[in-house]
């Protein structure tokens, strides 16, 4: 498709672009550079020597990995059921998915908190994982379902014609073709879980802080350079993951 030059907006309006980007990035950049200048790498060293921070990081990674894995698996099942098979629970699932997308995180967290209390389920990292999965699931389903609908169904028919049973169609044709979407869904789920503060705050047991929650606690007691160093580090990791996510974004359009 030939690239058509589109008429640009007036200069004044275009100026908003750099202004907004500046407003978004300036604090971040300042923080990162600030954590080096004057404070040198000392704070980073102190950071790494703090055992509680390292534990928090570990917990974040563990929770994110579990949540991402489980929600990706559930999302694959859900997307397949919604698009492919005659499934009685289709409508309830669509409705519940829509509801969870529109629910403010706060309400989700508090309702899960109430539920866990009723079940007498003690708050721990397990409850956090459960909460994260519930939070992340609709997004994962969206990503995978989008790719499924744009996939050419004839390929699956071809597989059946050549002798594949339903599970084989799934494992040899459908899933391999869904790979980019599965990776995207996993990465997004991981990111959302890793970065999550609100849900974790309410559904976690005491002393089990994940990294964002730990950061929050530190921030509440003052803005030491150590905190800024931690933030900067997390920021750089996040950015790396985001770039990964965008690079391996599932391509739009049907594939033959």
């Amino acid at each position: 498709m030939t690239e058509r030059i589109r008429p640009k907006a007036p200069r004044a309006l275009q100026m908003i672009l750099p202004v907004v980007l500046l407003a978004l990035y300036l604090p971040l950049v300042v923080m990162i550079t600030g954590s080096f200048k004057g404070w040198t790498l000392d704070w980073y060293i102190e950071l790494f020597q703090d055992p509680t921070l390292f534990q928090a990081l570990l917990r974040s990674v563990m929770v994110a990995t579990s949540s991402a894995t489980l929600s990706t698996v559930l999302a694959i099942s859900a997307a397949l059921a919604l698009e492919k098979f005659v499934f009685a629970g289709r409508w309830p699932m669509r409705i519940l998915s829509t509801i969870s997308l529109m629910l403010p995180e706060l309400v989700l967290s508090l309702s899960l908190l109430s539920w866990f209390s009723v079940l007498h389920w003690e708050l721990s990292l397990a409850t956090v994982v459960v909460a994260h999965i519930t939070l992340v699931l609709p997004f994962a389903i969206l990503i995978i379902a989008a790719r499924l609908t744009s996939m050419d169904a004839a390929v699956e028919d071809a597989a059946r014609d050549l002798g594949a049973g339903e599970w084989e169609v799934l494992s040899r044709v459908t899933l391999p073709l869904l790979k980019p979407a599965i990776i995207s869904a996993f990465t997004l789920s991981f990111l959302l879980s890793f970065d999550d503060f609100l849900v974790t705050y309410y559904t976690n047991g005491a002393g089990n802080d994940t990294l964002p929650v730990k950061l929050y606690a530190l921030m509440k007691s003052g803005l030491s350079p150590k905190v800024q160093a931690l933030s900067s580090l997390m920021l750089l990791v996040s950015v790396g993951l985001v770039i990964l996510l965008i690079k391996y974004r599932p391509k739009e359009g049907p594939e033959s």
Binding site: P27, L28, V30, G34, D195, F197, Q228, S238, V242
Partner: peptide
């Protein structure tokens, strides 16, 4: 990028 990075971090940066 800012959208997908941790909110706490961004607020931390603003506070700093």
């Amino acid at each position: 990028i800012p959208f997908l990075t941790n909110l706490v971090i961004r607020i931390c940066a603003l506070k700093a």
